[in-house]
């Protein structure tokens, strides 16, 4: 078993970064914590600092001004880290692609492990995405993190 599979077997701590969202996605992520979905029972928890996190959730389009911050947060993240693009915005840019302040889809900025499309994706969809990702860890998908993960 690779180190990545080993690391991500148990409770995941999640850091949530909104790059330039309409905050629908952000609210749906928060919704996951509240009684109906309650992801905390799986040990998943939102943390206040990227340095504590196993997973980086990115919502919203990456604007030219946030691009540097997204990169910075990614650099600060302890590797290996799973990056998940939540919502259509970070996946492709969706409706905002033609905007002058749009800096490109998230995977052009940092390596992404999973995409959860939808505008906003339902909380169930987010759960399903995470479960899928964990049950099938990407073999090679994330070059930067995997190479760093190898001891």
């Amino acid at each position: 078993m690779g180190i990545k599979e080993n690391c991500f077997k148990k409770s995941l701590w999640v850091f949530h970064l909104s790059a330039g969202s309409c905050n629908n996605c952000d609210i749906e992520i928060l919704d996951l914590l509240t009684p109906r979905y309650d992801v905390e029972r799986f040990g998943m928890k939102l943390v206040g600092s990227i340095r504590h996190a196993d997973v980086l959730l990115v919502t919203g389009i990456v604007t030219k001004k946030t691009k540097a911050r997204v990169l910075e947060v990614y650099e600060q993240a302890p590797k290996p880290i799973i990056v998940i693009a939540v919502g259509t915005c970070p996946c492709t840019g969706g409706i905002f692609t033609s905007g002058y302040n749009f800096a490109g889809p998230l995977d052009k900025v940092i390596p992404v492990d999973a995409y959860i499309p939808g505008c906003p994706p339902k909380p169930e969809a987010m759960l399903a995405g995470i479960v899928k990702l964990l049950s099938q860890p990407p073999k090679s998908g994330n070059p930067r993190t995997t190479s760093e993960a190898q001891p």
């Binding site: 330039g20 969202s21 919203g60 604007t63 409706i95 905007g99 002058y100 302040n101």
Partner: peptide, 23 residues
């Protein structure tokens, strides 16, 4: 400010009146 500036007003100008609703 400006972190979340997506240029929506400009995007609206390139959409039809109907489409602007979704933007």
């Amino acid at each position: 400010t400006g972190y979340n500036h997506r240029g929506i007003e400009k995007i609206c100008e390139s959409k039809t009146f109907e489409q602007v609703f979704y933007v």
